[in-house]
Design a protein around this nucleic acid. Sequence first.
DNA 1: CTTTGTGCAAATTCTTTGCACCAAA
DNA 2: TTTGGTGCAAAGAATTTGCACAAAG
Lengths: 129, 129
Amino acid sequence: MTSAEILLSQNIRPSLARVLIYDYLRKHRTHPTVDEIFTALSPRAPTLSKTTVYNTVKLLSSKGVIKMITIEDQQSRFDACTDNHGHFLCSGCGKVYDFDVEFPSAKIPEGFEVLTKDIYFTGKCNKCN
Amino acid sequence: MTSAEILLSQNIRPSLARVLIYDYLRKHRTHPTVDEIFTALSPRAPTLSKTTVYNTVKLLSSKGVIKMITIEDQQSRFDACTDNHGHFLCSGCGKVYDFDVEFPSAKIPEGFEVLTKDIYFTGKCNKCN
DNA sequence: CTTTGTGCAAATTCTTTGCACCAAA
DNA sequence: TTTGGTGCAAAGAATTTGCACAAAG
């Protein structure tokens, strides 16, 4: 499926900027920040603004098309892969790695509704260790 | 154990401000933000500054005495309980609840060293549902 | 005395908002 | 021709930094 088709299927109008940003996230599984997305796409799309990147990632994550990663305190990262998997932040190089993990079924109190689940590990990656 | 004793055992000098802040976190398991800690303690400690709260939570979490919670994108929260447990953020009222959960053992690649683990759920609590 | 902690104000960084213009249905 | 998208500049909020003073060993 193309990025435009996926957006359409979620009732998101596939504007040029949205497809560009979503496409970038699908092809670059580096969990980029808004700034990294903006910097990467700027050369190809000189009129793109950081506001549009903010607008777009906010829209896409509210629709569940992408996932916001808050593993760091300073800035948010984004991931086009919404399947359940863990995120590992290396405190040495700052890279965020994916890892496979079985999401535990916790005994949440009666009346609570769980909508999102995240598993975050931090430590040192093989290059920084 | 008193808060001062715990701080001392981790080679942290138990200054008045540090004990006050750590004590507050131990007694209030509400996962407060820096601002909430500062506002709560200000009446009792009129000379306390927000900078000192920032300095202290940074120091204590770097030493592993408290845990930083980055479940929200806007601001960090802090928890004096460092035992493994999950955090649930209600998108309705903004409250962060603790819950029991067995932390899964993920197959992290060779050479990776895991130092911290966090499990974050979001959704609606029983009052907001 | 010498190191460490505190606190004010300013600076920095990330994110949001207001508003005008542009593009698409 | 009306709604929705984009982008600039300004505002806002959380956090950090520089520096001077205070306190503790």
